[in-house]
């Protein structure tokens, strides 16, 4: 999906968001939101954006507050649960944790969705995105501590649910329709290639 060139309004909005974030970081660094800090932050943000212009990001969606809240709460829960799981795996004596590399074709192929989904996946213990196929929107994910195919498939469905929560939080109407579609058939459901070098 090659993004259409951004309109002037979109570019202005992207720049406004970047300035707002940079000013908040500046104020947080100084430890207080005073007028002097805000003005200083604006100056620094102007210089930063002039020297390091941001790549264009297409964002056609609409931020839904309940969606964001649901995503954040579920994310924190996942973070705690899987941190404990990986920690427990570390202390288990005489056990070599098995893992898997799975391909997950995302339903929405926008750069923003691929990035957000990968970052959320990477922050939750037990999964790392090791490769991304941008053209097909496929994530290659290394999953730790899976024992069999059934768990692999459960994990794959979990990633689609994660994508759904992200799109519900920040996606556009068209993207919401895409994620509401039924899950694709898993790409390699027949080929269990354990033990064979490919």
């Amino acid at each position: 999906m090659s993004p259409a060139p951004l309109s002037r309004r979109d570019r202005l909005r992207n720049r406004a968001v970047a300035v707002a974030v940079l000013v908040s970081v500046w104020c947080l660094l100084w430890g207080s939101f005073t007028w002097a800090n805000v003005l200083g932050g604006l100056a620094v943000a102007a210089v930063v954006l002039a020297v390091f212009p941001l790549p264009p990001v297409t964002f056609a969606g609409r931020v839904s507050l309940p969606g964001v809240l649901r995503f954040v709460l579920r994310f924190l829960l996942d973070l705690v649960v899987s941190s404990v799981q990986v920690a427990a795996l570390a202390f288990r004596v005489g056990h070599r944790p098995a893992s898997a590399v799975i391909a997950v074709p995302l339903k929405v192929r926008s750069d923003l969705n691929i990035t957000l989904t990968s970052v959320a996946l990477c922050l939750v213990p037990g999964s790392i995105v090791i490769d991304v196929d941008r053209a097909t929107g496929t994530l290659y994910v290394h999953v730790l501590g899976v024992r069999d195919r059934a768990e692999v498939e459960r994990f794959r469905r979990g990633i689609w649910r994660l994508e759904e929560r992200i799109i519900t939080a920040v996606g556009s109407a068209a993207e919401r329709r895409l994620v509401a579609a039924p899950d694709p058939v898993s790409p390699q459901s027949s080929a269990d290639r354990k033990g064979t070098r490919v």
């Binding site: 098995a98 898997a100 590399v101 290659y140 692999v152 390699q188 033990g195 064979t196």
Partner: peptide, 15 residues
Amino acid sequence: PDLLVTDELPADGGP
């Protein structure tokens, strides 16, 4: 591969 339940990376090593 001995450590993997499944490996779905393309045979050419991925994108």
